[in-house]
Design a protein around this nucleic acid. Structure first.
Lengths: 215, 215
DNA sequence: AGGCTGCCTTACGAGTGTAAGGTTCGTCAA
DNA sequence: TTGACGAACCTTACACTCGTAAGGCAGCCT
C-alpha cells in the first residue's frame, strides 16, 4: 500500500490537526478525510460516526497532559508541573476546552487524571473538603487562563493602538497597555505568578479546618 | 400592528433566548426569526447580517454584568460583587464565553468594563504590574469556574453512580463524589471560597513590590 | 396617488452526516 | 496456480441546514 494505512489513531490525529488549523467547527468528515488524502466515507471503517471522533479527540488531548508522579516531594511542585503541562496542551489546542463542555461523559482518561491529582492533595494532608476546594480553584484558574490566552493575540498589538487613541475615556486601560507593550513583559509569566499565589494560599490553609465549617 | 414590531434589541434578545436553550450553534437566522414568530429574511431589516447579531449578543451579555461602583469602601467588596455578577450572567448564558473568543474586537462595553475594574484596583493602591496580575488572576478564575460549572450537571448525579461502581481504581474520586453528594454541599459555595482566597492573597501582596522585580 | 416601511416568498449555492453499493487488492485454501 | 473471501477505500446520492440575494404584497403617512 502506497500511503500507510488508516487507523483510528491516525484519524484522531488528523482531526486534531484540522481543529488546530481551523477551530472546532472545522472538524467535518470531509475535511478530516482530506487531511489523510482519503474520501470521507473511508473514515467509517475505523470510526462508527462523527461523535466517536469528537469523544476520541477529547480523550487524546487529555492523555497528552502529564500525569502527576505519585509519592513525590512537595505537593506544590507536583501540582505546578501538572498545571504547566495542562496549560501547554490546552493552549496548543485552544478549541479543546470548548469541546469538553459539549461532550458529556468524562471518559476514563479524564477520571484517572483527576483521581491522581486528588491523590497528591490527600497524601499531602488536605482534608476531602479542602482538596475539593483546591482542585476547583486550580482547575478553574488553569482553564480560565487558557481561554483568556486564546482571545489575546490581537488584544495587545492591534487593538493596543486603537485604545491609545481614545485614551481619555480609558485611562487605566492605557496604563496597562503601555505596561504590556514594554519589552520585558510576557503573558506567560502571568500564569506562573497567579499559580504560585494560589499554591501558597492553599498551603497556608492546608490543615486549617474549613472556614465554613463543612468538615 | 398585532404583535409588537421588531427591533434590533428584540432580535438580540431572541438570539440570546435561542442560545440559552440550544447552545451557541443554535443561533441561526431561521431559528431566531421563529422565536419572534417571523420569517428569517425579516431580520435583515433590523440587522445587516448574522455576524452583527453575534457581535451585538456579546455586547448585550457583557452589558448585563454590573459595573463596579467607583470610590467605594474596601476594594475586595467591590471586586467580589463584580465577580459574583459576572459569574451569574456568564453561567446563565454558558455559551457566551465560547462566543467571546471567536469575536475579535473587544467592543466598547467590554473595554469600559475592564477600565472600571482596573480603576478600582489602582485607587486601592495596586501598582500597575500588580493590578495586571490581579485582573488576570481574577478573570481567569471566574471564567474558568463558569466553564467547569457548565460541564458539571451530569458529572455528579448521573456519572456519580458509574464512578462508585468502579471505585477500586479511583479511590480518591470516590471520596469526592461521596462528599459532593452529601446534602449540605453546593458547588456555588465553592465559588465564594476560592474567590475569597484569591482576594485575601492579593490583599497581602497589594503594596509589596513585585516578587519578580518587574516594577 | 405615491411612496415607504415591514414582512413574506422563493430560490440559490454551499456545506453537513451518512446510507447503499461498487471497486481494488492482499491473503490464504484448495 | 487459481479462485474465493474480506478488508480498505471510493462513488453516488439523500435529506437536511445554513446565510442571504431578489423581488412581491400589504398597510400607513404624506
Amino acid at each position: 500500500m502506497a500511503r500507510q494505512s488508516l487507523t483510528r489513531d491516525r484519524v484522531l490525529e488528523a482531526a486534531i490537526r484540522v481543529a488546530d488549523r481551523g477551530g472546532l467547527e472545522a472538524i467535518s468528515m470531509r475535511r478530516v478525510a482530506q487531511e489523510l488524502n482519503v474520501e470521507a466515507m473511508s473514515l467509517y471503517h475505523h470510526v462508527p460516526n462523527k461523535d466517536a471522533i469528537l469523544d476520541g479527540v477529547v480523550d487524546a488531548v487529555f492523555a497528552a497532559i502529564d500525569l502527576p508522579p505519585t509519592g513525590c516531594a512537595d505537593w506544590r511542585d507536583v501540582i505546578r508541573a501538572r498545571a504547566a503541562s495542562a496549560r501547554a496542551v490546552l493552549s496548543r489546542h485552544s478549541w479543546a476546552l470548548a469541546l469538553m463542555d459539549s461532550r458529556r461523559n468524562p471518559g476514563l482518561t479524564t477520571l484517572r487524571h483527576h483521581n491522581a491529582v486528588l491523590g497528591v492533595l490527600r497524601e499531602a494532608g488536605f482534608s476531602v473538603a479542602m482538596a475539593v476546594h483546591a482542585i476547583s480553584l486550580i482547575d478553574s484558574y488553569v482553564n480560565g487562563f487558557v481561554i483568556q490566552e486564546a482571545s489575546m493575540p490581537t488584544d495587545l498589538d492591534v487593538v493596543g493602538g486603537d485604545i491609545l487613541a481614545r485614551a481619555d475615556e480609558l485611562p487605566y486601560i492605557r496604563e496597562v497597555v503601555e505596561h504590556a507593550l514594554r519589552p520585558g513583559y510576557s503573558p506567560a509569566d502571568e500564569f506562573g505568578y497567579g499559580l504560585d499565589l494560589l499554591l501558597d494560599a492553599l498551603e497556608n490553609r492546608r490543615s486549617v479546618p474549613c472556614a465554613r465549617g463543612d468538615h
